[in-house]
Design a binder for these strands. Structure first.
Length: 316
RNA sequence: CGCGGGGUGGAGCAGCUUGGUAGCUCGUCAGGCUCAUAACCUGAAGGCCAGAGGUUCAAAUCCUCUCCCCGCAA
């Protein structure tokens, strides 16, 4: 099929590769414009851009994909179908109607759950044990299109957003090629989403990573996993930002009186330290203090004196 | 020119203000103690103090420039 591929995140890379490998005709890759990012004012393009350039694919980076100029160009490509995966701009009805067939979107959750920009993160933050990827025929409302098919994926206890994202991106690639096959053969059924089961996964904000020590150790642990690696779960230690990348829930052998204020360091060992929470204790295994690189707690403790009774705070 | 922190044996840090012997907690290696050990004791190896200039009798330390890492912000 003649495909125009819309993507801006590395999540879409396996899908892009799969479409190529399946022998479809990639007319053009559409991605977000280069943006200033990082320290200073370095301009950089998306990873999709570099991949497309490496593969010699045609690249298009409209500032506004719905503009007349952009729509005219996309129309001129005369595509069978638009494939949209983590593109980052909402397509107008006009653009959605450009391809001969329709616009196909792969979303990183089992819809109608977790509509929105950060489904992988929220699935973990909420302590879920399974999620998946869904192929939908897009309509003008965000993630509300009819479902063509989906695949489920387990969320393992050791998964974080990164590892789960990698797994889902691969399953998205499989789902995409399967779906394209179905569409090619005409053997697919559209199922409307159950509006009663809808939930949302809005784009993560920096503040979403702030740890509330009054929460349970389990939910803080889920926050740490779900906010990996951006924005990162964080607290403050002696006025400095402390990002926490890896934790585990500590299961004490004996019951404690629970008199420790949540956020207090209750034990410092050689390789890690333990912080009390609203319910249960949390082992801190990997972290990053402001101005320093990310490191294992064992490394951190080699050079930073930390003592029982210190407090990790929710603000400076 | 967005703001700020940093670069010191293999790891993480102190020392810099007030120039004068390279320090701490680990790790590594060797030996000892021990029924035994990730524990304890003793000893050793391992540094052009990011790089280049400058000031000085003397620079990790003060001045200038370059490179690299990180947090904020986007």
């Amino acid at each position: 099929m003649r495909i125009v591929f819309f993507a801006s995140d590395k999540f879409s890379l396996p899908s892009l590769e799969a479409v190529r490998a399946a022998g479809h005709e990639l007319l053009c890759v559409v991605t977000q414009p280069d943006k200033k990012s990082g320290r200073g004012l370095n301009v950089s393009g998306t990873e999709i851009k570099s991949a497309a350039l490496t593969s010699g694919l045609k690249l298009y980076q409209p500032l506004k994909v719905n503009s007349k100029e952009s729509a005219d160009y996309l129309k001129s490509l005369n595509a069978d179908i638009f494939v949209v995966i983590a593109y980052g701009q909402i397509l107008s009805r006009e653009v959605l109607n450009l391809p001969k067939l329709f616009c196909l979107n792969i979303h990183a959750s089992v819809l109608p759950k977790y509509r929105g920009a950060a489904p992988i993160n929220w699935a973990i933050i909420n302590g879920g044990t399974e999620t998946g990827v869904t192929a939908i025929k897009m309509n003008e409302k965000m993630d509300q299109g009819e479902i063509i098919c989906y695949k489920q994926e387990m969320i393992l206890a050791e998964d974080n957003s990164q590892t789960l994202g990698i797994k889902l991106s691969k399953s998205a690639a499989c789902l995409l090629t399967e779906t394209l096959d179905k569409i090619n053969r005409g053997g697919y059924i559209l199922t409307a989403q159950d509006e009663a089961a809808v939930s949302f996964a809005p784009k993560l904000k920096k503040e979403d990573g702030l740890i509330d020590w009054n929460a349970s150790a389990k939910s803080i642990h889920d926050l740490v996993r779900g906010c990996y690696e951006w924005p990162g779960a964080y607290a403050f230690l002696n006025g400095k930002l402390l990002k926490i990348f890896k934790t585990s829930v500590f299961l004490p052998l004996e019951k404690k009186d629970g008199s420790n204020t949540p956020g207090t360091v209750i034990k410092v060992l050689k390789d890690y330290f333990i912080v009390s929470t609203g319910s249960g204790d949390l082992v801190i295994e990997e972290l990053q203090i402001e101005g320093k690189r990310r490191m294992f707690t064992s490394e951190f403790l080699s050079g930073h004196k930390m003592s029982v009774g210190e407090c990790l705070l929710g603000k400076k």
